[in-house]
Each structure stands twice: as structure tokens, then as C-alpha cells.
Design a protein around this nucleic acid. Structure first.
Lengths: 217, 217
DNA sequence: AGTTGTGAACTGATTCACAGCC
DNA sequence: GGCTGTGAATCAGTTCACAACT
């Protein structure tokens, strides 16, 4: 697999969408596809698709297009989702619980193998098919279960602390659902999902942009 | 309020983060702040902050900085979160339920006023403080409750259909949690949050990027 | 002295256009 | 004829550097 010397973030995001679309196409029985078709499905141009793929190699046949199965295998390898990732969820509140039982993760190769919470009342209670573990068990669990990704689903004021604990335990990638910026040392990676920020951005666009037919403004 | 003739999406995203940080600063008792401080907190440069704000007007005082309270009011007006938005959640599964009871929305001016599901078994059951409503009640509820934002928390295969129903009912902005691209007509707005895609992108970065101290690669 | 506001320079990403191959 | 792969051109977004102001 060609080394990703430097690949823009936006490319990786789209690669992930291409993969989703390819799986859909395979489900529909397609053997082959084109950059134009693939782009159309995710809202990008054919040229964009080809440029994105060109970051990693030459996967198509001129005049023909891309073989769906092969491209799926290739993109899975690029995204490193051709293996199982063991994931810990920290925070057994509403979001933590919802994520713990979320099928989509399982289908894409992410196995949630442990749920943690430092609220003693929740400890030992069921969360999906798991018993909630106390935070002091984190280090051992990460080691023994081979956890390399952590999901932060705790209130904002303890998110950074939880991130620090995960990093200390050796978890390399964090997905943060708390509405704060979480910092991690070099060699670790965080991505954040901020529901409220998404809604605020939506509010802006709805309020200001393209007032299609309303009589006002 | 200066009209946002054309404002990049990235600017809006950051404005939303600035607002969050300003509220934190106010909570800590700060009266005034600087572009450098604000930028540092969200991982951007001072120049970036000033350029972003300059899209909308002149809000600072040279040599002094920005008045926290005033800037909060201004940014709230820009993002259009200086009013109450009435929100419907469609899908009373794990995610729908978690979102319906999510405090952060309430704190930021988004009021979830109805939860829908077309599964008859769920109809009438409690979801937070709401009774789940059947989908055929959507039009009336949107009208009577003044709903202008919809959250799609249904399985991927019915997401587009739900989006169409929401649009038909007059809901202008959609926040989609299903892992598919949802299309809406001009004059409507969708944003998508895709957990699995986030994890895939995380996997890529963890697997390929900066291997900080491991002996391999 | 300190900090904003902003044109100019730069960097990076997207689109264009077409040669190369099937 | 059709579609990929890619250099060149365009476009957008970010950083720089400094004048303007308190």
C-alpha cells in the first residue's frame, strides 16, 4: 500500500464515503463503477474522486472504470479497517449507552469491548451486553483487551481528564463527544463530534442562507 | 448585523467554537479577551480569529481586545441562536432517545418539542418527557409546535424518506445521523453526523500517521 | 506598549482539459 | 467511444506583516 506521505484530511473523509457507497453498490449487485458515478453519489466530481484515489495508487482501468470488490478491499486497507479495532466507551450516560449498542460500529469492524464510568452507582450495571467497569480498571482492561480506540462520552468538565487517562493507558485514538477541545500529545489522535455545534451551524444556514420562497426578508 | 454575502463553512464552524469558548470565559469571570487567547483555546491563530470576525463587522477595540459579553451577544445573533429553535427528533431508537434527553441542546436554545417514530410498538411510549408520536402526525405537529429543525435518527434505509417527509412538512434544517447522504431541495439545509465515518478516519490516522515511539515502521 | 483590522503573499485544494490506455 | 490519470490553471482559505488606533 502506497505510503500516505501527506494526505489532506478532506481526502480521508471522502475515501470513507466512497467506501460506504461502494458497499452499497456491491449490495445492489454492481461489479464495476466509474469515478463519475462514485462522485455523484457523494456529491463530488469525477475528477475529485480520481485525484483522491491517486493519492494512494492506480486502481482503475482506463475505458472501463473500477472493479467494485477490488476497490472495497483497497479502500479498507487504506483506512485500516481491514482489521478489527477494539474500542472502549467511557461514560455510561445517554450517549455512551446509545453508542455501546450501536450496530453500525460492529458492522464496520469496530468492536466495543468495554464500557467505563466512574459513577459508583452505575458500576456493574448493564450497558448493552456489558457490565460497566470502574475507571480504575482502565489500564488493565486496555492491556488485556487490546483496546486502541476510546470514545469519550462524559460531561465536558471531565473530558480532558478522561482523555489523559486513556492516553496514559496507551489508547492511541480518541473520539470525543464532549463539547470541549481535548488535547493529546503527539502520536495520539482525537476527533470530536459536537452535536450542539452542528445544530448552531445549521441554525446559521437556515436563518441566513437561501430564503427560497418565503415572502419575508 | 452585516449580511453574510458569502461566508465559508469553516468560518461558521469556528464562530460556533468561539462562542462556546466565550461562554466558558464568562463563566470564569473574564470581562475581556483577545484574538490570541480566543484562538489558542480552539487551536487557531489570532489572525484567523480576526479574519473570521471581520466577515461580520468590527467588534474589537485596538489595543484592548474584545468585550466578552458583547461578543457573545454578537456571535449569538450571527449564528441565529439568540432565539429559540423548536426541534423534532424522528426515530426513537438508541440515538433518538439519547438526543431527546440531551441537556446540551436545551442549554443552547434548541428545544426538542416532539419525538416521532413509525414503529407502532413505540408509539405512545415515553421518550424522556415526551410521548412518541406516529409519523402521520408530523405535518400537524410541525405547524402547531413551530418546528423548524428536524433530527433524523432512523436506520439508513429510511433516512431519505424521513427527510422528504420533514421537508414536505416545512422543516427547513435537518441534522442527519444516518450513514447515508440525504438530499434536500434548494432552500433547505442538511448536515450529517456519521459516527462510523468518524471512527474510520480515526483508524486511518492512528494506523498510518506519526508513529511516535514504536519501534516498528 | 498592546491589539485590532486588513491588504498582500502564500499554501492547499479543486476544477479543467487532455493525453494515454482499454 | 469511454474512462482513467495527471499536469496546469483556478479558486479558496490561511498566514504574514504592518498600519491604524487606544
Amino acid at each position: 500500500m502506497a505510503e500516505p506521505s501527506h494526505v489532506p484530511r478532506a481526502v480521508i473523509q471522502r475515501i470513507s464515503f466512497y467506501l460506504r457507497q461502494l458497499e452499497q453498490l456491491r449490495h445492489e449487485g454492481a461489479d464495476t463503477t466509474s469515478s463519475a458515478q462514485l462522485g455523484e453519489a457523494i456529491g463530488a466530481s469525477g475528477a475529485q474522486v480520481r485525484k483522491d484515489l491517486a493519492c494512494f495508487g492506480h486502481f482503475g482501468r482506463r475505458g472501463v472504470g473500477y472493479e467494485v470488490d477490488r476497490l472495497i478491499r483497497i479502500l479498507r486497507a487504506i483506512l485500516a479497517v481491514d482489521r478489527e479495532w477494539h474500542v472502549a466507551v467511557v461514560g455510561a450516560g445517554n450517549i455512551g449507552r446509545a453508542l455501546s449498542t450501536h450496530r453500525v460500529f460492529y458492522e464496520r469492524g469496530f468492536r466495543i469491548v468495554a464500557v467505563f464510568d466512574n459513577d459508583a452507582r452505575k458500576e456493574g450495571s448493564a450497558c448493552g451486553s456489558f457490565k460497566v467497569r470502574p475507571m480504575w480498571d482502565l489500564d488493565r482492561a486496555v492491556r488485556e483487551l487490546g483496546i486502541s480506540v476510546g470514545i469519550i462520552a462524559v460531561p465536558p468538565h471531565s473530558a480532558q481528564q478522561v482523555a489523559d487517562q486513556l492516553v496514559a493507558a496507551g489508547v492511541r485514538g480518541l473520539l470525543n463527544f464532549a463539547p470541549v477541545r481535548v488535547r493529546v500529545p503527539d502520536g495520539f489522535e482525537v476527533r470530536s463530534v459536537d452535536f450542539a455545534a452542528e445544530l448552531q451551524q445549521l441554525a446559521f444556514h437556515v436563518a441566513h442562507l437561501h430564503n427560497h420562497d418565503g415572502p419575508n426578508e
